[in-house]
Computed example of a mutant assay.
Amino acid sequence: MILSVIDPKQPFQQDYSQAVQDLVNFLRSGLGDNLHSVYVYGSVARKTASPHRSNLDVIVVTHQSFSQQRMTLFNTVKWKFQKTYSHVTEVSFKTALVSEVASLDSIFSWGFLLRHCAVCVFGEDLSECFGDYEPSWEIAKYWNNDVEDWLAVYRNRVALAKDDSELLKSQHLIAKKMLRASYSLVIPRDRAWHDSPIACGKQFLHYHPEMRVEIERLVIMLSQRVIAKRSTIGMIDSYGKWLAERYKKTEFRIG
């Protein structure tokens, strides 16, 4: 089965179209000729974003490194967006060089992300360097095989959250990651690809119905309801451990 791509001709939602255009203008002004292309991925790219809940996820591809001005440029963009587009919860950036993206080594990383999860909003569309993809363990493994590492990172974030706002943000992030990682385990059998965390959880349950309670708890963590730290940490320690072990077993079996 060939995976679908996001239709680049479908317009962005009204709440985000001007925000995306302003973002491109900021980056063009700040990077000049060094800017090669800009991509939007995530819910804004899929046109399913929810105001005051969804991030604007961006990939910036340049010809040369801009590490010295990176922090200043991105912080300025974020500050301007906080003032102008308060419904955008955060502007999140990934960066890459053209030489890194247009490489055989990037087939399951940048190649897959640009081809099936993103929309080019400025410049030469590097997704056209790659053919269409089929669901595979290689894709699932690349995006989730470090599950044990990021579980530890997010566990620490939850434990150190100073208020409900920080805790809510952390629980949302870990719930999304765990739902997507759950689905990635069954991609070789399901032969499809889902990006929506809730859709990932539902499809995963077709193969692991015994995990219904855990998936339901993760979906609750996606809501606006703040979950107690001990409950979120409990999910990370119990279900997260199961996920990490399953990835190791699947990798051993498939290779």
Rank of each mutant, 00 (worst) to 15 (best):
W110K: 02
H194F: 15
S29C: 14
F74Q: 12
C129P: 01
I220T: 09
F66L: 10
L243R: 01
T62M: 10
K162C: 08
F130I: 07
F26V: 06
L205G: 05
T95V: 11
S106W: 04
R115E: 01
Y207V: 04
I139K: 03
M178W: 01
H206V: 08
R70D: 06
S4C: 02
A199Q: 13
S65A: 15
K229D: 02
K229Q: 12
D15R: 03
Q171S: 12
S182T: 13
H36S: 11
L167Q: 02
R28P: 03
K47V: 08
D15C: 07
N55M: 14
L168G: 03
D15W: 12
D57K: 07
A118G: 05
V5H: 00
M221N: 04
W143K: 14
D15Q: 14
T84E: 15
E124P: 04
I107T: 08
Q203L: 11
Q224K: 14
Y85C: 03
A152N: 10
T95Q: 12
A96W: 06
K83C: 10
G32P: 04
T62N: 09
K229P: 00
A45F: 07
F130H: 02
G111Y: 00
F12P: 01
L97M: 15
T62W: 10
V213N: 15
A159I: 09
T232C: 09
V153K: 09
N156K: 15
G32I: 05
Y239D: 00
N144L: 08
G111P: 00
E210H: 09
L173A: 13
S136Y: 05
N144R: 05
L35K: 08
S50F: 11
D132K: 09
K169C: 13
D146M: 04
K162F: 09
T48S: 14
G131C: 09
L179C: 05
L167C: 03
E124C: 12
S86C: 08
K80F: 01
Q21M: 02
R70S: 13
S17A: 15
V5R: 12
D22W: 08
H208Y: 15
R191H: 14
H52P: 05
W143H: 06
I198S: 09
D163N: 15
S86F: 13
T48H: 06
Y142R: 12
K94L: 15
L97N: 04
L97H: 05
M1P: 06
A244S: 14
A181P: 03
W79K: 12
C200D: 03
N75E: 10
D164H: 10
Y16S: 03
V101R: 03
E251M: 13
S231A: 15
I59K: 01
